[in-house]
């Protein structure tokens, strides 16, 4: 049981990494990127291609891929999302849904449908573990994933609260027109947010591929986990996203100790219960729930 709790917390780090990009883009540009999971897979496959082609270390290959993913996010926001956002709330959903399908089939065309993994390129990191007292052993890869997630979220939090770009980003998410009236190029800020979001998706995808087998169609399942983590944690804060990821990871790992099928089931049940509770509390206390969801606070 204790083992499941530790595994769940560490898994939550991965979900938080995946979810932070989704929630950042939603908070700033106000659309849900349904291709987020597929973009994560795209990042993973790009690293895999570099590793296979040039024999690079996966961690080394990740660095250029993150820049490529950031550039991809920037230009997608500029040429695709910004245009569809003008068409109302439904159009970005449809567009990103289609983009996800295009990425899936593009990956299928380029890499085939065979399951792939970065696990056999990272040496003994994939099975090595820290041995703690009382017979507990914690895998090094999950610890590394969690630490990376915390560092990525911490860096993002610093960026948001301490920098000129971060202030402009929060201002744009809270009131885009007022931001424009204060001289902020809101479209540019949204492009920057998309760049960060897509790079974070790629980073999460790399860790997914190190931990497990992936195939070109793994993206949508990851999107669902990210979405659940975001809803549980609330879009307002990055540490909320981490909490949401941990709650989801805990539910899944504890569920898996009850029954092998419990992994998926427990995660979804906790999500639904949480969502229901949120709506119920909104009804009784009159909290403007959607407003809490949409804001990026100072803290």
């Amino acid at each position: 049981m204790f083992d499941a709790i530790v595994q769940g917390v560490l898994l939550g780090g991965y979900y938080a990494m995946l979810a932070s990009g989704l929630s950042l883009l939603f908070g700033v540009a106000r659309f849900i990127n349904l291709a987020h999971g597929d973009l994560a897979l795209l990042g993973a496959y790009l690293v895999l291609a570099l590793v296979r082609r040039f024999g690079l270390d996966p961690f080394v290959a990740t660095v250029p891929v993150l820049f490529v993913m950031a550039a991809l996010g920037w230009f997608m926001q500029k040429w695709l999302f910004a245009r569809t956002m003008r068409g109302g709330i439904l159009l970005p959903l449809l567009t990103t849904f289609g983009l996800g399908a295009a990425i899936q089939n593009g990956l299928y065309g380029a890499f085939g449908s065979d399951a792939a993994s970065l696990g056999n390129h990272i040496g003994n990191l994939s099975w090595d573990s820290f041995d703690l007292p009382f017979g507990i052993s914690i895998g090094k890869l999950p610890v590394l994933t969690f630490a990376t997630a915390v560092m990525a979220l911490g860096a993002l939090q610093l960026l948001l609260s301490r920098t000129r770009f971060g202030r402009a980003l929060r201002a744009t998410s809270q009131d885009p027109e007022a931001a424009r009236l204060s001289g902020v190029d809101a479209e540019r800020v949204q492009r920057g947010a998309a760049a960060i979001a897509v790079a974070l998706a790629g980073l999460a995808g790399v860790f997914l591929a190190m931990r497990s087998l992936i195939n070109p169609y793994s993206g949508p399942a990851e999107l669902i986990y990210a979405f659940e983590a975001v809803v549980i944690g609330g879009i307002g804060s990055l540490w909320g996203t981490l909490t949401g990821g941990i709650v989801l990871g805990l539910a899944q790992c504890v569920g898996a100790t009850v029954s092998p099928q419990g992994f998926q089931l427990a995660g979804h049940v906790v999500f639904l219960v949480w969502l229901g509770g949120r709506f119920y509390s909104q009804g009784t206390r009159g909290t403007p729930w959607h407003r809490r969801l949409l804001k990026w606070g100072s803290a």
Binding site: R164, R167, A168, R170, A171, Q174, D175, E177, A178, A179, L181, S182, G183, V184, D185, K295, W296, G297, S298
Partner: peptide
């Protein structure tokens, strides 16, 4: 049309910076 979840100082800084 202030930025509600930012401090007064941050509200001012944004316009000053841009």
């Amino acid at each position: 049309r202030l930025f509600p979840d930012m401090t007064v100082r941050e509200n001012l800084m944004i316009a000053g910076e841009h």
